[in-house]
């Protein structure tokens, strides 16, 4: 390294030192500390005592760990594909030359800027089994068939699907990203396909989808991470770590939270956090592998 390179390196480090210190203090150190605590009997209030792999072994035998994981994967498994389809469909519609396009774009984006707690409270009312807006609309439709609408959040069988439905409320962010991706598809490709006689579906299948594949990949990965970390909606709607009704909505992060801050088992919660990290990293890697051939 020449003296000029060394000076350049030092200048660079000097300019980025604030970020490096911040990252080290608020990200790297807590992560490494939590990794250490995951091998300890630690309550946050007393000194950690090394216990080896005990926390991880206990996790394997913990019913609630598996239940919360199943619930979370169920939620992610439905919410991510449905969210992707809904956001992409809306983006396709709002990409068309229609009257009032700007208004509709704003309208569909607006819900995603409503704070999650506020929208959760709103959905609590909308999904109320007796007085909710959704059942008020469903009841007359189902009545001729002798059916009654579900009580949603009060029924263990319907509580998770209700939360999935609620998650679609916030697809505005993904929709805007899809919209940006759609506007980057070269017009001439569509024109050439039209000249060749391609209809709407072949144009979408062979031009739009391959071109916006990186955008889909990004949204799917982000959606997956968010879905696996579902917390606020579940905390508000399912009364915190209770996962009511009958633990049907006990998700992974609320269980982790209650273990750490209610039961004061910070070591065990740290182990849970690292398992979740590994799971998210694994699924992101899997998604990358599956979409590798489609990405340009």
């Amino acid at each position: 390294m020449t003296p000029r390179d060394r000076r350049s390196l030092l200048s660079g480090l000097g300019f980025t030192s604030l970020w490096i210190v911040g990252f080290g203090t608020f990200v790297a150190y807590p992560m490494l500390a939590s990794l250490f605590y995951s091998f300890c009997d630690y309550s946050i209030l007393k000194s950690p005592v090394w216990c080896g792999f005990e926390n991880y072994q206990t996790l394997v035998r913990d019913d609630l760990f598996w239940k919360s994981l199943r619930n979370t994967l169920f939620f992610a498994g439905l919410a991510v594909p449905l969210g992707t389809i809904t956001a992409l469909s809306l983006a396709l519609l709002l990409n068309c030359e229609v009257r009032g396009r700007a208004f509709f774009r704003t309208l569909f984006y607006l819900p995603s800027i409503v704070p999650v707690v506020a929208s959760s409270m709103l959905w609590l009312w909308m999904l109320n089994g007796k007085f909710g807006l959704i059942n008020a609309l469903l009841a007359p439709v189902l009545a001729p068939f002798g059916l009654t609408p579900p009580v949603w959040l009060a029924d263990p069988a319907w509580a998770k699907p209700a939360l999935v439905m609620m998650s679609l409320w916030g697809v505005g962010n993904a929709m805007v990203i899809y919209l940006a991706g759609l506007q980057n598809v070269p017009r001439e490709l569509y024109e050439a396909a039209a000249i060749d006689g391609a209809g709407a579906w072949p144009r979408f299948r062979h031009i739009t989808l391959p071109t916006i594949a990186p955008v889909i990949y990004f949204n799917v990965i982000m959606g997956l991470i968010n879905a696996l970390q579902i917390f606020t909606q579940a905390f508000v709607i399912a009364e915190g770590a209770e996962g009511n009704p009958a633990r049907s909505t006990l998700f992974y992060t609320p269980y982790l939270f209650s273990t750490a801050f209610y039961d004061l088992r910070m070591g065990y919660a740290s182990a849970m956090a690292w398992v979740l990290f590994a799971l998210i990293a694994g699924l992101a890697w899997l998604a990358t592998r599956l979409m590798r051939d489609s990405l340009h």
Binding site: G129, K130, F131, V151, A154, D155
Partner: peptide, 8 residues
């Protein structure tokens, strides 16, 4: 019945 009633 009781679940519907209590949800109100």
């Amino acid at each position: 019945s009781v679940t519907t009633f209590a949800s109100g």
